[in-house]
Design a protein around this nucleic acid. Structure first.
Length: 207
DNA sequence: TGCCAGGCCCTCTTTAGGGCCTT
């Protein structure tokens, strides 16, 4: 099987009506960045109309208003376009379990599957950047001086910041292991290791 | 009316509890 590199993937972020599709929550915006050799080569961004109003907390938290969603394409149309964009790429998100459950939920509604696996920048940074004050996306972006102007809690900007964080994490791993190429499975191995022994596990993985 | 996530991780742990992260 062809090696899958950790710097070739699609970074994904959803804004949603709430925390759980199991409670009827839906996606309202998707943002994504395709990385090739760690460089952004393509982006995807769209608001989507979930067919019901979002509450005032979500309007304030994201800056996405009901008025903005009125003119947006319906979820099915946007998710079909994203599915085409994604192709067979692996995926990355900050707290991937959250974005994965919304991706799975929205794609199941249009009978689409995807082949890629998810990496998680939150789990990885808890190992590799264990000295960070906390592991919220905004904090890590400041901690590693990755800052750019933009609006956190909008999907494309968060995906772009997650992409920068991931490249920074890969740089740290590369420096610690003295290797050039980092495969996707190595990063999965690190994210599943403990804070104390991730480097040991990573070295075992490449030997 | 009342309810309201879930997976990960640490520790004063494993017969559990609570904080962290995502919207």
């Amino acid at each position: 099987m062809e090696t899958q590199f950790a710097d070739d993937l699609v970074v994904l972020d959803f804004e949603t009506t709430g925390l759980s599709p199991d409670n009827g929550d839906r996606a309202i915006e998707i943002g994504a960045v395709r990385l090739r050799k760690g460089k952004p080569v393509d982006t995807f961004q769209a608001l989507m109309n979930p067919g019901r109003r979002v509450n005032s907390f979500i309007e304030q938290y994201t800056g996405i208003t009901n008025r903005m969603l009125q003119s947006a394409a319906p979820n099915a149309e946007v998710m079909e376009a994203f599915w085409q964009f994604l192709g067979d790429d692996n995926l990355l998100a900050h707290n991937a379990s959250f974005d994965k459950k919304f991706l799975d939920s929205e794609l199941s509604l249009i009978n689409r599957n995807y082949a890629g696996q998810f990496a998680c920048s939150l789990l990885t940074s808890r190992r590799v950047f264990s000295d960070a004050p906390n592991h919220r996306l905004g904090t890590l972006v400041s901690y590693k001086n990755l800052n750019e102007s933009g609006d956190f809690h909008r999907a494309l900007f968060d995906a772009q910041m997650t992409a920068k964080l991931w490249v920074s994490l890969l740089g740290e791993v590369r420096a610690n292991l003295a290797v050039d190429d980092i495969d996707f499975d190595l990063m999965q191995c690190i994210s599943k290791a403990s804070k104390r022994d991730w480097l040991v596990k990573a070295k075992q993985h490449i030997n």
